[in-house]
Computed example of a mutant assay.
Amino acid sequence: MNSASIASKLAIHGHPIHPMLIHFPVAALIGVIGSDLAYVLTQDYFWARASLWLVGIGTLGGWVSGTIGLLDLVIVSQIRRLITAWCHGILAVMMLSLATLNWLIRLDDPAGALFPWGIYLSLLSGVMISLTSFLGGQLVYDHAVGVSHEKIRERAERLGVDP
């Protein structure tokens, strides 16, 4: 791991906002795959409506979180210099574009839009989330983006362990 950390400019008490916000949209967009499959298996309209809500909430939340991540990319020069950060951002925009399309095609007819495009877009979004998350993990673990070594040392001292 890189010994020098890169601080986020958009943080609350040293904790970056982007990683705080991204978990819920990711969970919602992955949940769309499950609710789509539940609809396919049961033909219960509840699951089609659940998919519509999950993809809508996941998309809106993803755009909010992504905007904050984009601001960090543009504002912090050390992040801006990382190819991994640009790849993470580009994949995130591509994935959110797919999720937005998935949401828009479902608005008028949540059940009718499932075949074939809704399910295809849900699965493709899931693959894109995996790739984007992998690169986000590299930013944290390999480049120490948003990691505070000082806070890690303080916490380790309080717990009585080696950092």
Rank of each mutant, 00 (worst) to 15 (best):
L123R: 01
R106K: 15
S130N: 09
C87G: 03
G126C: 03
H88V: 02
L21D: 11
M95W: 05
H13K: 14
T84A: 10
L71N: 03
R158S: 12
Q78K: 12
W103I: 02
N102G: 06
P25V: 01
L107R: 11
A11K: 11
W47N: 03
I90A: 09
I57P: 05
W86G: 12
R155H: 13
S3R: 11
L135A: 09
W53N: 07
L101P: 00
G118F: 08
I12F: 15
A11M: 07
V74C: 04
P19Y: 07
G62Q: 06
I119Y: 09
I152P: 06
F24A: 13
G31M: 03
L131F: 10
I30E: 00
R49K: 13
G136A: 09
S122E: 06
T67Y: 13
A28H: 04
D162H: 14
D72L: 04
G34W: 11
A38E: 00
I17H: 10
H18P: 03
M95D: 03
L52W: 14
G66W: 03
I12T: 10
A27Y: 01
D72Q: 08
L107A: 01
L10M: 09
L71A: 15
P116A: 09
D142M: 10
P25M: 03
W47T: 06
L123N: 02
R153K: 14
A111N: 10
S97V: 10
I30P: 01
V127N: 00
R81N: 14
F115V: 15
L96G: 05
H23M: 08
V26T: 07
G137A: 01
S8I: 11
H23T: 07
L124M: 08
Y45R: 12
H23E: 09
V161Q: 07
L71Y: 14
